[in-house]
Design a protein around this nucleic acid. Structure first.
Lengths: 321, 321
DNA sequence: AAAATAATGATCCAATTGTTTTAATTTTTC
DNA sequence: GAAAAATTAAAACAATTGGATCATTATTTT
C-alpha cells in the first residue's frame, strides 16, 4: 500500500520533532478504547492506520497536544484525526482526547474518574458511583501520607508535641472536627491539652496565660478562618511554638509554624474532606501515646475506671419501662 | 481577596463542577517550578494566589485543559493566568503548560521504574513505622467501603435521610466528631439538621417534640455510650426512624435501626479510629447534596455571602499592629 | 479501458484559544 | 478624607483550534 504518490509523506509514523517517550504500552492494563482501536485497525485505510498507530503508541500526547499538533506528529492531515474519531464511533475528536486525558488523571493519582458534564445535567440517579469515587479517593489520599516525607513530618511534630508542657488545640469551623478529636483523645491520656474553643468568642482566652514552653497545635484548611489565623499569630508572638495541620505549602499558617503536616482535602464532592486530617490527628495521638506505653496504659485505665463508675457505657439497649 | 465578587466561591470549599485529582504530592518529589511558585507565593496578590494555589494542587489539570478552562476551575479571570505566567518570569502561559505537560510525559516514562522502588527504605524516625502501619490500615478500611454492600447501605441511608422532614444527629464521646461534622455540613445546606448535643445533659431535649416523619441519625462505636443508646431507643419509641453508623453487626443499635452502615474502627493503636466513620459521614452529606444540585449550590452561595459579610475567612495572616 | 467508488488533500468556517488593552475597583498612602 | 497606586474585572484582539466541505487523487469494479 501507500507511497505511490510523489508527495506522499513518509510511510512509517514520523516524529518530526524529537519526542520523548515511546515505550510500547505506557497506558495501563485495560483500556477499552485501545482495544477498540486495535480491533478496528485492520479495517482502516492507510492514513487512518497511520493516525491510529500514533495514537496507540503515544497515548499521552493525545491528551497533551492539540489535534493539529498531533496530526503533525503523526504525519497526517488534521482531518484524518477527525475521521478516526468518527470511525471509532465518536461524535468528534475531542471525545478521544477526553478519554486519554482521563487516563492521565487516573494515572497521576488514584483518584476516580469523573463525569464531565455541565451542571445542568440531572444528578446521577443511584449515587452509588459518587460514593465509590469519593471513598476511593479518600483511601488514596490517606495512603499518600505513607510516603517518607509526610511520615517524617508526622514524627517530627509528634516529638515536639511530646516535649511540650502544655498543648493548646485550635481548630474552627470544619477543622473543629479535628481539633476536638485531638483534644478528646489527649484528655484521656492526661491533662496537657487545652481546647481553644468556647462560646461567644471566648475560645482564645485560655491563651492569656500561655507560656513559651507550651505549644499551639492549630488545624486549618482552605478557606482559613480569620480567627484561627489571628490566634495562631498571637500565640507565636507570645513565644509559643506553632504546629499546624493544614492543606497546602502556601497556607498562611506555614510561615509561622515550626512544624507543618500537610493533608489532602480535595474530594469528589461539594465539600472538602477532613478524613485525612482526622487520620493525621489519630496518628499524632498514637505516636504520643506510644512514647510512654506504661503511662498511657495507666491513664487509659484511670479513664476506664472513671467512666465505669459513671456508668457511661453499655453493651445493650437499656431496659424499657 | 475574592468573595466580594458576585461569583465568589462557597465558604465550604466547593466544587460545583466535577472535580478530579487531589492528593498532596501527585507531582514527583522535585519540581523546580513548584518550588518557585511557593517561593513567590507570598508576594502575589489575592487573585494570583488563588490561581497559583490551584496550579499547585492540580498540576495535571494544567497540562490537560485549556487556560480558560483552568481559569474557570480556579475561579479566576483568564487574564490572571497570563499574569501568573509573567510573574513567574515566563513569556506566556503556554510555557507553564509546557512544563507540566513535560512532567506528565516523564511520569509516564518512568512509571514502571517508580513502581519497582517501593517501600522498604531504611527505617527513619522512631515511630515512623507505626504511623505507616496505621495510615496504611486506615486507607484499606476506607477502601473496603467501596464494596457493593457498603455502597448499597450508604445509598439506601441517603435516600431515607433525603426524605426526612428533619434529621436529629446524635453522637457522644468519640462519636461526637462524626455527629458534629454531619450537622455542620448539613447546616450549611439548610436547616433540617438538629444536633442532639448540649451542656449539662440537655442534649436530648430537642427530641421532646420529635415527630414520626423525622429521623434520628445516630453514630456510636464500641464502647457504646449509654446515653446514646437511651436516646436512640426513645426516638424509636416516638416513631422516628433510627439510622445508625456503627462498628458491628452486633452493635446494640442494629436492632432498633431501620438502616445501618458499618465502618471499621480497628487501628494499630490504643484507640479506635474514626476516620472511616467520618468518611461515611462525608459520603452521606455528598449524596444528600447531590440530590438537588441547584438547591445545594444556592445554599452554599447563601452561606458564602453570609460568612463573607462576617469577614470569617482570610487567606493571609492578619497584619500585626 | 472507462466508470464508479473510496480515500485523501486542501480550503474554509465558526468557535475558542491566549493575550493585550482599557475601565472599574480596591487598597494604600498621605 | 482625598489622592495615588495597585489590583482586578471586562472587553477586544489576532491566532489557532476542531470540524465541514469540496476538489483531487487513488483504488476498485466493470
Amino acid at each position: 500500500m501507500s507511497s505511490k504518490s510523489p508527495m506522499s509523506k513518509s510511510p512509517m509514523p514520523t516524529s518530526p520533532t524529537s519526542k520523548s517517550s515511546a515505550s510500547k504500552s505506557p497506558v495501563s492494563q485495560s483500556d477499552p478504547l485501545r482495544e477498540q482501536i486495535i480491533a478496528q485497525f485492520d479495517g482502516m485505510s492507510a492514513q487512518l492506520q497511520q493516525a491510529a498507530r500514533y495514537v496507540l503508541e503515544h497515548p499521552e500526547e493525545v491528551a497533551l497536544v492539540s489535534m493539529r499538533e498531533l496530526a503533525r506528529l503523526a504525519a497526517v492531515q488534521p482531518a484524518t484525526m477527525t475521521r478516526l474519531a468518527k470511525m471509532l464511533g465518536f461524535q468528534g475528536y475531542n471525545e478521544i482526547r477526553a478519554h486519554y486525558a482521563e487516563t492521565v488523571r487516573q494515572r497521576n493519582d488514584g483518584f476516580a474518574a469523573k463525569v464531565r458534564q455541565r451542571d445542568g445535567q440531572a444528578a446521577s440517579a443511584p449515587g452509588s458511583d459518587i460514593a465509590h469515587h469519593m471513598l476511593h479517593g479518600l483511601s488514596a489520599q490517606i495512603a499518600a501520607l505513607c510516603e517518607p516525607e509526610p511520615l517524617q513530618r508526622l514524627t517530627a511534630m509528634a516529638s515536639k508535641l511530646a516535649a511540650a508542657k502544655k498543648i493548646y488545640v485550635l481548630g474552627l469551623r470544619s477543622s473543629h472536627v479535628v481539633a476536638w478529636h485531638f483534644h478528646y483523645v489527649m484528655s484521656l491520656l492526661g491533662e496537657r491539652s487545652v481546647h481553644l474553643d468556647g462560646p461567644a468568642g471566648t475560645g482564645g482566652d485560655a491563651l492569656i496565660r500561655a507560656k513559651p514552653d507550651e505549644v499551639l497545635l492549630v488545624i486549618s484548611i482552605n478557606p482559613y478562618a480569620r480567627d484561627t489565623l489571628t490566634l495562631a499569630q498571637l500565640a507565636k508572638d507570645k513565644g509559643l511554638a506553632v504546629l499546624s495541620i493544614t492543606d497546602s505549602e502556601v497556607s498562611p499558617l506555614v510561615s509561622i509554624s515550626e512544624h507543618t503536616v500537610y493533608c489532602a482535602t480535595e474530594s469528589y464532592s461539594f465539600f472538602h474532606t477532613l478524613a485525612p486530617a482526622l487520620a493525621v490527628s489519630e496518628v499524632l495521638c498514637t505516636l504520643l501515646a506510644e512514647r510512654d506505653r506504661p503511662a498511657t496504659l495507666a491513664a487509659l485505665q484511670d479513664a476506664d475506671d472513671h467512666l465505669a463508675h459513671l456508668n457511661t457505657y453499655s453493651n445493650a439497649l437499656p431496659r424499657r419501662e
